[in-house]
Simulated scan of single mutants.
Amino acid sequence: MGTTDFQTGRHDPVRPLDEAQALDPSFYLGQAAFDVDQRHILAPGWQLVAPADLVAQPGDHIVRELGGKPVLIVRNAQGELNGFNNVCRHRAGPVALCDGKGAKRLRCAYHGWIYDLDGRLKVTPQMDGAKNFDPSGIRLPAIDVAEWCGMIFARAGPGPGFADVAADFAPLAAPDHLTAMQYHHSRTYPVAANWKVYVDNYLEGYHVPVVHAGLNAIIDYGDYTIDLSRWASVQKSPMEDDSLYGTGEARYVFIWPNTMLNILPNRVQTNRVIATGPARCEVEFGYYYLPGEERRAPEDDAFSTEVQAEDAMICERVQKGLASGAYTPGRLSPQQESAVWHFQNLLRRAYGTQKDTP
C-alpha cells in the first residue's frame, strides 16, 4: 500500500459508536503508515518498558526501543531514574549494548566515550588535538521516565505528562492490587501482523468464544463489560472458580498507545506491543505474582503461551485479509467493540494532526 493510499485513509472520519465502522485497511499496510506510527504515535506515547526491579539500584540500567528510537534508562547515585537516547554524541554508537547492573559510568561500545549516570560526557579518549572542542557542555539527550506501581514507563517525544495519563488510567487499573505484586519473569512473542492488528484483537472479547476455548471456559463472557476513559479502556469479566487463576474479576486494561495490564486474581501480566515492521510486531509479557503465588508460574506461562499462539494465528490471518484488496471496512459491534472504536478514534485523531508526508 503506497503513500497516496495511506494519505487518503488518514481522512477516515470519526463516527458515533452506533454508526462506527472499522479503520481503512491502509492504516495497517506499508512503510508509510509504519513510519508515521513510529514517529508520531509510538515514540512519544507513554509505555511500560520494564519492572522497576530491573533498575532497583544505582547503576542498574535497561536498553529498549521506543518507536524505533534506541533508549537507555538508568538509576543514578541518588536513586533517581534518568532516561536518555542510547546514542553517543560522538558518532552515534550505542552507549550501552544491553541491560546491566551497578555501572559506575556509561561507556560507548564504539569508541569508548564515557558519560556519568546523569548523562554528562566525562571522558573523550584521544581528542586532545581537536580545536575548540569542549566536552563540558555535552550530554546525552534526555527522554521522559516515570515509575508507577513498581513499573517503569517512558516516552521519547512530547505529549501529555505522565501524571495526567496515570490519573486517567489508574481508576481502571486497581493500583492497590498492582503494588502488592512481585515481578517474576518476562517473555517475548513474535506476531506476523501490524501492531495495530494485535491491539485491535486485544480490545475485544467478541472473538474469545470462537478463538480461545480454554480462556472462554474460565471467564464469564455473558457478564463482560467495557469502560472507557480518555487514554485507556478496561474490559471486565468475572472469573469462574479455576485452579490456575482462582475466583474473582479479570480486568484487561489498555493504555494508549501500546500497553496492556492483565489484572487477574493473585497475579498480573503486562504487555507492550512493539512495532518491528509494517506487518510484524513483538509482544513483551511481564509476569507478576502475589507472594506465594509464583509457584504457579510454569502453568501460568504455558496457558498464556497457548492463548498467545491462538491470538497470533488469528492476527496473522487478519493481516493477510487486510492486504488482500478484498476487504472494505465493516461495521463495529456497539456492545462488544467499543474499546476498538475508542482506540481507532485515537488513531484517527493522531493521524489527522500530522501534516507531514511520511
Rank of each mutant, 00 (worst) to 15 (best):
D5P: 07
F6S: 07
G9R: 10
H11N: 15
P13L: 12
L23V: 08
Q31P: 08
D35I: 11
G45K: 09
A52I: 02
A52C: 02
D53L: 04
H61Y: 04
I62W: 00
I62L: 06
I62E: 00
L66H: 01
K69F: 03
P70R: 01
P70A: 00
L81C: 01
F84N: 01
V87W: 01
V87P: 01
C88N: 03
R89A: 13
G93Y: 06
G93I: 03
P94G: 00
P94S: 05
A96L: 05
A96I: 05
L97S: 08
D99G: 10
K101W: 00
R105W: 10
R105Y: 13
L106V: 05
A109P: 12
Y115H: 11
K122D: 07
G129D: 14
G129H: 12
K131C: 15
D134C: 10
P135Y: 08
S136H: 11
G137L: 12
I138L: 14
V145S: 05
V145G: 06
A146W: 12
E147H: 12
I152K: 09
P160W: 02
V165Y: 08
V165A: 09
A167G: 15
A173V: 14
L178T: 11
A193W: 11
K196E: 02
Y198E: 10
G205Y: 12
H212M: 10
H212K: 09
N216S: 15
N216K: 09
I219R: 07
I219N: 10
Y221H: 11
G222H: 11
I226E: 03
S229I: 00
R230F: 03
W231R: 01
A232L: 04
Q235A: 10
D242N: 15
S243W: 02
G246K: 00
E249I: 04
F254E: 00
I255D: 00
P257G: 01
P265T: 03
R267N: 05
T270F: 03
N271Q: 14
I274Y: 08
G277C: 02
C281R: 01
G286C: 06
L290Y: 04
A297W: 09
P298W: 06
D301Y: 13
S304M: 15
Q308W: 14
Q308I: 12
D311I: 12
I314Y: 06
C315W: 10
R317L: 15
A326N: 14
A326Y: 14
A326K: 14
L332H: 10
S338E: 07
F343K: 05
N345W: 07
L347R: 08
L347I: 13
R348Y: 11
Q354P: 06
